[in-house]
Design a protein around this nucleic acid. Structure first.
Lengths: 234, 234
DNA sequence: TGTACATCAGTGAACGCGCGTTCACTGATGTAC
DNA sequence: TGTACATCAGTGAACGCGCGTTCACTGATGTAC
């Protein structure tokens, strides 16, 4: 809520930074009511500007939404890159951190997340959007490639691309079903992080990585609880 | 489009089966324009009835949507149950079939699928809806329990509940990201089915099941292709 | 440094539209006797 | 079997509302000279 003019509410005829303000307003509205529940007029109102003003900056509602998705992917890429940290201290640990970062992004940035994945705007609605999406995925793919290079000899494994898609899908599934802040979230007898971590470790074990102790850790730490799906069996 | 009166368009003052007709109409509209892009009035119009008529059968739009989601879960449960076929001919094969059925449902019934998972209606908006959702999940959970009973001794594994959640998440992730008929679908250098199957088999291998030949089969059958994410590396 | 002018960004009024919702109504159906 | 009546399901007109979009406009900003 701070524009480049500093005195509260005292903005002149020109807003000065309306494009940015509209993006922020829309983001807030999406967080509140979901990507379906925000309108162009609503964004204008929230930004404190007439309903006609947004047309100076965006062709229409979808154009604004695509901009948000694009920015979301850029931020997502940065988050994943930081989590990966070029594979430090070791590849498996860093890989697990990517999964955690994925969930964390979905939870802390639900508005971005739904604009990116649930708003219904086609991925290729703009080349910039598509490119941003690919760059984010490229982080996971690069990590998978490093992981693939480490698989023990003699173990059959799919292409690194496919490994990346598996991890992406698993993370996305967990995030969509359980890892959101909204009311549609399903309840779970464990944290989404534990669920994802255990799943990823079993997957890695299937690729020949020695991860037994970790899986066991997740196992015992979550098994005793119960929840709406019933009590977890021994 | 066939009501209980048989002559086309000749219906009297009473529709006779409006509740059902509204559900069908809404389902068609959701398939066309997504769950956000259908309105109560629209459903009434499609069903050939005045805008006020739906109020005799549904409290409001969300009530209708919840009914569709519930019916979707019931159908989903039936589909999964049939695919599981009580674990015949063997547990692993039947388990794989559940995954395929999941994807198939998402593709052939996108309207149900989005009403169930993407419409924004809370899972617990009605007890019937919540129960239907749980019954569908129970199929996967029962399968996971059978699978858990078969894990080789000495292999640490998570509770069957968690295994079920892993498979559900992976399937849901693949279906959401790649397995839909709509325009927002991301392109993939392989079929969603192959992706899911390979992932599930690696996961099962991580649980100690011998599945090498199968993973390898999926591997080589999909590796040569390339796509928008780049060429799959050797 | 000042002035004239072009460009730009936001205004506010107006429009048509479709939606949600209510209402008294009416035609059809079912049922008691 | 017929008749009277209650109940039910759909009608159509009406309402207020907010949205998307266009338009001539106007205030502010930047720039050429």
């Amino acid at each position: 809520m701070s524009w480049h003019k500093d005195r509260r509410g005292e903005r002149g005829y020109h807003h000065g930074n309306l494009k940015e303000a509209l993006l922020q307003a829309a983001l807030g509205l999406i967080a509140e009511k979901g990507p379906a529940g925000f309108t162009f007029a609503d964004a204008a109102r929230t930004a404190g500007v007439s309903a006609a003003a947004p047309y100076r900056h965006f062709r229409d509602r979808d154009d604004l939404l695509a901009s948000i998705a694009q920015r979301g992917f850029e931020q997502f890429e940065a988050t994943l890159t930081a989590a990966w940290d070029d594979g430090r201290p070791d590849t498996v640990t860093a890989f697990e951190r990517i999964g955690k970062a994925y969930l964390n992004f979905a939870r802390t940035e639900p508005a971005f997340y739904s604009a990116m994945f649930e708003s219904g705007i086609p991925v290729d609605s703009s080349p910039e959007l598509a490119a941003a999406g690919e760059r984010a995925f490229a982080v996971i793919r690069a990590a998978a490639e490093r992981l693939a290079a480490l698989t023990p000899p003699g173990v059959t494994r799919p292409p690194a691309m496919m490994m990346a898609l598996h991890i992406w899908s698993l993370s996305h599934g967990v995030a969509s079903l359980f890892g959101r802040g909204d009311a549609a979230r399903r309840k779970l007898p464990m944290s989404p992080e534990d669920l994802l971590e255990a799943g990823a470790l079993i997957y890695l074990r299937g690729l020949g990585f020695p991860t037994d102790q970790n899986v066991h850790k997740s196992d015992t730490s979550t098994a005793p609880k119960s929840g709406p799906w019933g009590t977890a069996p021994k």
